[in-house]
């Protein structure tokens, strides 16, 4: 495979652009984060996110091209996250991508955000099919089975909160600043023992997840302790919560990996930066002898390199979008057809 792709990602609160060579080599990977601005509101405010994207978009794209030392005429295609995500935020990246592609006569490719997260692994080592990907982020918790490039089958997903969402909410209960995930992870590692919280296993054969019950359990625990006039130990609450999330995610992932006889397991998405989760998956999969890929942290959080990696394979398969591309906030993860 030989191609050079400019990729753009603005689905949430990171304005990102990247140049990817042959689907595997990162020539540049620029991310302008809005965390400092969004912190004020304890979460991502869509209107603010969209405004920041407009401020940053051309600056970020220019930096990506300059760092890669690439001229527009060197490129084969422009890729952009089409969805899912915040619609107003997506629209900035999409319209910038379309205007750029049109200016230089380049084809445009609309990439699914989750497919992008999964393909982040191909920037680390080649994908081995069939594979299983656990995607965990602020907006998603999914188990995706891939029998080959471009083939996605969601075999399990959350029925309520995404794992990252639960992390943020529990962090708020513990008075930790946004984004809460890293704080919980850090606190959890400082505790000897955790508070005992329930695990949501759901039906026996289900690969689905549920985290809202766990979140409520944490809130109830705090209330009960307060009513009894007792102090909670944040480290122990964090550990108890994290242990529950990690055990459910690990157990279901390993079970699915064995049942589907996959050659590789990938963990992807912002929450995969979580040390507790990485250690647990790595240990459990090693025990079963199943190869495990966890991309470095900067490729787990939202970035455009992963969008470019995915688009490289889409480009080879002949997948193309057009200038009428719209933001698809609820875009489904579907296999792409070869042409």
């Amino acid at each position: 495979m030989e191609n050079l792709i400019l990729a753009i990602e603005t689905s949430c609160d990171e304005t990102a652009a990247s140049v990817i060579k042959n689907g595997t080599e990162i020539l540049s990977n620029v991310v302008a984060s809005q965390i400092e601005s969004q912190k004020r509101f304890g979460g991502v405010v869509p209107e603010i996110a969209s405004r920041h994207h407009v401020e940053q978009i051309t600056i970020v794209i220019e930096e990506a091209l300059e760092k890669a030392n690439i001229e527009p005429s060197d490129l084969n295609a422009v890729a952009v996250t089409e969805g899912p995500g915040l619609v107003g935020a997506l629209l900035v990246g999409i319209n910038a991508a379309k205007a750029f592609a049109f200016s230089h006569g380049l084809p445009i490719i609309g990439v699914h955000h989750i497919a992008g997260h999964i393909y982040a692994s191909s920037l680390v080592e080649p994908m081995q099919f069939p594979l299983l990907a656990l995607v965990v982020s602020g907006g998603h918790t999914e188990l995706v089975y891939m029998k080959e490039h471009g083939s996605f089958e969601v075999i399990g997903e959350t029925r309520d909160d995404a794992a990252g969402e639960a992390y943020d909410k529990v962090a708020r209960v513990l008075n930790m600043p946004y984004p809460g995930g890293p704080h919980i992870d850090r606190l959890a590692h400082e505790a000897e023992k955790g508070v005992e919280f329930p695990r949501a296993w759901l039906e026996e054969n289900s690969y689905d997840f549920s985290f809202s019950g766990l979140k409520s359990a944490v809130i109830n625990y705090k209330h009960n302790m307060e009513q009894r006039g007792e102090e909670i130990v944040p480290e122990e609450v964090a550990k108890g919560f994290q242990d529950s999330v990690v055990e459910v995610l690990t157990t279901k992932t390993v079970k699915a990996a064995k049942e589907l006889n996959v050659k590789q397991v990938i963990v992807a998405g912002g929450v995969s930066a979580n040390r507790g989760l990485r250690e647990s998956l790595s240990e459990a999969l090693a025990k079963e002898g199943i190869p495990f890929v966890a991309p470095p942290l900067h490729l787990c959080t939202d970035n455009a390199a992963m969008i470019g990696a995915c688009a490289a394979y889409m480009y080879e398969a002949g997948v193309r979008g057009d200038l009428s591309m719209n933001g698809l906030p609820g875009k489904e993860l579907k296999s792409w057809a070869r042409s």
């Binding site: 407009v54 978009i57 319209n95 205007a99 750029f100």
Partner: peptide, 19 residues
Amino acid sequence: SYTGLRIGVTIAKTLAWTL
């Protein structure tokens, strides 16, 4: 409209910058 403005401005500034 906030979204309408952003679409036109994003297209216009991307065209202007890259051309």
